[in-house]
């Protein structure tokens, strides 16, 4: 299934300036995301990662600059969707109905909706839990439902805002593995916010680092590191430590820069 602009970027942001009530949080952020690309955004807490994600999704109007997102690939899909840090399921809907949320209002019949939701649940390994209430699921299961709900609308771009940070280490590892498997089976490009450098290096094709050149200044893109290790290699940890160290150096130099005089 080819998209209309299979070669062009699915998301393009140019010189974004973002902020609240006159205060600029992020400045001069530009980003192009190709179809099916996986971009990780890392940075310290409060640097503006969630803000950037919301602006890219069109939930927050930028102070300056513009964002263009490619339109839905077909009538029964949405151009983007999102996975949050907390699962944010509706407790009054059963699991399957939660997955269907984004499908309501799309030109799909009720059986088609059920069908699509069931497929997505199967994709995250929860095909048997569709009839359960969300509160009866574990945290990891709930987060998987959140992922299924986001994938069900067949988005061009999937935004994920620290989707695993609220989970315990073991569940997090497992879901990271599942996500890299899932990538092979979805059309979506993924923009993934995290403050876990290893996670970024493990999953992404490209890591964008946000940081403040100086305290009290708006944050910017400090650097963007492409990751061209094959997935299998990353999982085997060959060269992986180097990669993490490179990234850590970048983030380290950025935090160091806030303390030292910038070198001229």
């Amino acid at each position: 299934m080819a998209t209309v602009n299979a070669t062009g970027p699915v998301l393009a942001a140019r010189h974004l300036q973002l902020g609240f009530g006159g205060e600029v949080v992020l400045d001069d952020v530009s980003l192009e995301v190709r179809p099916q690309e996986f971009v990780a955004v890392v940075g310290a807490s409060g640097v503006g990662k969630s803000t950037l994600l919301r602006a890219l999704a069109g939930l927050l109007p930028p102070l300056q600059g513009q964002v263009s997102l490619s339109p839905p690939s077909e009538p029964s899909s949405r151009s983007w969707s999102m996975v949050f840090q907390a699962p944010r399921l509706y407790p009054w809907r059963r699991v399957l109905a939660n997955v269907e949320l984004g499908l309501e209002g799309l030109p799909l019949s009720r059986p088609e909706r059920h069908q699509r939701a069931r497929e997505q649940l199967a994709l995250v390994g929860l095909e048997d839990l569709g009839g359960r209430w969300p509160r009866t699921l574990s945290g990891g299961q709930q987060q998987r439902v959140g992922i299924a709900r986001a994938l069900a609308v067949k988005p061009q771009v999937l935004f994920m805002d620290e989707p695993f940070s609220a989970l315990d280490a073991i569940t997090r590892r497992r879901l990271q593995g599942e996500l890299s498997q899932l990538r092979q089976r979805t059309e979506a490009a993924i923009i993934f916010v995290t403050h876990d450098i290893e996670e970024a290096a493990l999953l992404a094709d490209r890591v964008m680092v946000l940081g403040k050149p100086e305290t009290r200044q708006p944050a910017r893109v400090t650097t963007t590191v492409p990751i061209d290790l094959a997935l299998a290699k990353r999982q085997n940890r060959a060269g992986f430590t180097d990669l993490v160290q490179t990234l850590e150096r970048h983030i380290g130099s950025e935090t160091a820069g806030t303390q030292q005089e910038p070198q001229s």
């Binding site: 969707s81 999102m82 944010r88 509706y90 009054w92 949320l101 309501e104």
Partner: peptide
């Protein structure tokens, strides 16, 4: 408010949808 944000993200941001899918059940 996060329930409403979820509704917006998943294309249910119209007043009637928010009322029916978030406000009343919640």
């Amino acid at each position: 408010p996060s329930y409403y944000e979820v509704a917006t993200v998943f294309g249910q941001g119209r007043f009637v949808d928010r009322l029916q899918k978030v406000s009343l059940p919640a």
